[in-house]
Amino acid sequence: MSEDLRALEQWVEPLLARLASAQRVRLARRVGMQLRRAEQRRIAAQRNPDGSAYAPRRKPAPARQKAGRIKRAAMFAKLRQAKHFRVRAGAQQVSVGFVGRVSRIATIHQEGRSDSVSRGGPRIRYEQRRLLGFSNDSLALVHEAIMSHLTAGNP
């Protein structure tokens, strides 16, 4: 994957050098927004960047189960909201990631770390669920966004 990113960088560098700074920022924002939407859809589908499914949630202990059916919300429903999932764009770079307190939660799941469930509560090891990642689909999306920007007469 890193070879693909280097090839993309070498391909796009001379094209971007011809653009004015404001146009590069506009392009970076457009690419970032499209990447964020794609990542939001992938997180909603509960898929890792490689296409594999997220590790399922841990089942509660039998003594703690409540009677009746408990409907659980989708994992990371609030994390993928735009107010937590931000795009930062500049003339030289674009980044898509989590901000604020939710970035800690995202990091724990991204790397499969352990954390306490509540203050002073037991520590639980969370399964690794790759919230952010660059896939071949992301690479194609970036390529397509750059090409549509350049062919739309923006330069």
Score class of each variant (00 low, 15 high):
L131Q: 07
V102P: 01
T107V: 02
A73T: 00
R113C: 07
A22D: 15
P56T: 02
L5Q: 09
L132M: 10
R69M: 09
W11T: 08
A61D: 09
A106F: 08
K59V: 13
R119L: 12
G32E: 07
M33H: 06
V96A: 12
V102Q: 11
R58S: 05
Q34H: 05
R36T: 01
A89K: 00
D4H: 00
D4S: 01
L131V: 02
V102M: 15
R26L: 15
A77D: 07
A38S: 07
E111P: 02
P14H: 08
R42D: 04
L132V: 03
V117H: 01
S21N: 12
R36P: 04
E39G: 07
W11N: 07
S103M: 11
R125Q: 09
G97I: 04
P14D: 08
G112T: 02
A67V: 05
S95W: 10
A53V: 10
Q65C: 04
P62E: 14
T107L: 14
R30A: 15
L131E: 04
A106S: 08
A67G: 02
A67Q: 06
S21C: 15
G32Q: 05
M33S: 06
A73M: 11
I43V: 12
G90L: 15
A61P: 02
R130E: 15
V94Q: 01
A55D: 00
Q46E: 11
R119D: 00
Q46T: 02
V87T: 02
R80Q: 11
S114Q: 05
G51L: 14
E111D: 13
Q34N: 05
Q23P: 10
Q10G: 12
A7R: 03
K83N: 11
W11M: 13
R57L: 13
A73C: 04
G51R: 02
S52T: 12
V94A: 13
G68S: 04
A73N: 10
Q93C: 09
R129H: 04
M75K: 00
G133A: 11
I43K: 04
L16Q: 08
R57F: 13
R6P: 04
V87G: 06
G100K: 06
V99F: 13
